[in-house]
């Protein structure tokens, strides 16, 4: 049973065709210029927790408090190849707490106990000062508060711990809530490849 084609239907068809063509054109235009996925990342040379020269200040916790993701999509990561593997790590220990019988500070720094320490290399069980240590951060526990980052940075540490966006958590918001709050505009959008390489915090000069 075919309905008679009315003038109204014809008009609709024409307009629909026009709209479809417009959509197609818009889509082709957008697809043509779409290249290079960018993602949010913390620029370590801007973040007050990691950039040099802000010694002694309290850690900025906005990455923890502002992120729309539970616990925050920003976590601290330890770039192992830059870590000094110290016995007394200022990011692991609260270095101003009382010293215990082993000569180590008695308190840990991380409020969520997210940093683990283990001796590596030829471990000397007798003398804790005779070892290298690997410090790894449990990203499931870390909420990106930045306390350890603040303590790890030069000159106290080597700046191996930095805040990084974790992409399996990040919602990739149009306007990242942390970037809205960040006083130093340290949340930037970078191409994926660039976001994944280690941050160049301290360019080597010599």
């Amino acid at each position: 049973m075919s309905e008679p084609v009315t003038r109204r239907d014809l008009l609709h068809q024409v307009v629909r065709g026009g709209v479809l063509a417009t959509f197609g054109g818009g889509a082709i235009f957008l697809v043509q210029k779409a290249h290079g996925q960018v993602v949010w990342q913390v620029d370590a040379s801007r973040c007050i927790n990691s950039r040099l020269g802000d010694t002694g200040a309290e850690a900025c916790k906005l990455c923890t408090t502002e992120c729309v993701v539970a616990l925050s999509a920003v976590r601290a990561v330890n770039e192992y190849s830059k870590c000094g593997r110290c016995n007394i790590c200022p990011a692991y220990f609260n270095i101003t707490s009382a010293v215990d019988a082993q000569g180590l500070p008695s308190e840990k720094l991380c409020p969520r106990d997210a940093i683990a320490r283990k001796p590596i290399g030829k471990a000397d069980p007798e003398d804790p000062a005779n070892n290298f240590y690997e410090y790894s951060i449990d990203e499931e526990k870390c909420d990106g508060c930045g306390k350890c980052v603040m303590k790890c940075k030069e000159p106290l540490g080597l700046g191996s711990i930095v805040l990084r966006v974790r992409y399996d958590k990040c919602e990739d918001c149009n306007r990242c809530a942390i970037s809205r709050a960040c006083p130093k505009d340290a949340l930037i959008q970078v191409p994926v490849e660039q976001a994944l390489r280690p941050p160049e915090l301290h360019p080597r000069t010599e």
Partner: peptide
């Protein structure tokens, strides 16, 4: 020498 975080007689920090 020994480590101490607050006592000036000790050496503070990581290193």
């Amino acid at each position: 020498g020994r480590f101490h975080g607050t006592d000036p007689a000790g050496f503070g920090g990581c290193c």
